[in-house]
């Protein structure tokens, strides 16, 4: 038993204080220092023609090659973001779109019938306006 002045600390108090500190640190780690902050995407969803959508985690860097109707489309996942890096199509809208970083954002290569979109359980937005 620990006494400071007239205040007595019992073992149970020490335990509670310890648990409270752990809880506080844990909350900081989740909401401040985690790579997955709110609205940040966790999953890349790839829809290829009428196939069921494929899902990839954004936490692992990788390149996905899809052979579409008019040629290959290359999709890159890097540091929690995703983009088209190459497309066989002429317009290159999908490549021009650049990085998808926010959950809800999407882009597509229409001639190749490939669309990619970012998803997150804690998504900030239900849709992104003004994207192609």
């Amino acid at each position: 038993m620990l006494t400071i002045g007239k205040v007595i600390f019992k073992p149970a108090d020490i335990l509670i204080l310890f648990a409270a500190s752990i809880l506080t640190l844990w909350l900081y780690s989740i909401f401040w220092f985690s790579a997955n902050q709110q609205g940040e995407a966790e999953i890349l969803r790839v829809q290829f023609a009428d196939n069921p959508p494929l899902e990839y985690t954004l936490s692992e860097d990788r390149t996905i090659v899809l052979a579409g109707k008019i040629g290959d489309s290359l999709i890159e996942i890097k540091q929690g973001k995703a983009r088209f890096i190459h497309s066989a199509c002429r317009n290159q809208f999908c490549v021009f779109h650049g990085w998808l970083t926010v959950a809800g954002d999407s882009t597509a290569c229409l001639p190749n019938r490939i669309s990619i979109s970012l998803k997150s359980a804690l998504s900030d937005y239900d849709a992104i306006a003004g994207s192609q």
Binding site: W99, L100, D124, A129, G130
Partner: peptide, 23 residues
């Protein structure tokens, strides 16, 4: 309510540009 993010018209190739300009 449905919440919509509005894309920044600035080129998204540039990583210093915020991808969403408004909601």
């Amino acid at each position: 309510l449905w919440r919509i993010g509005i894309k920044n018209p600035e080129n998204a190739q540039n990583p210093s540009v915020k991808p969403i300009i408004a909601a």
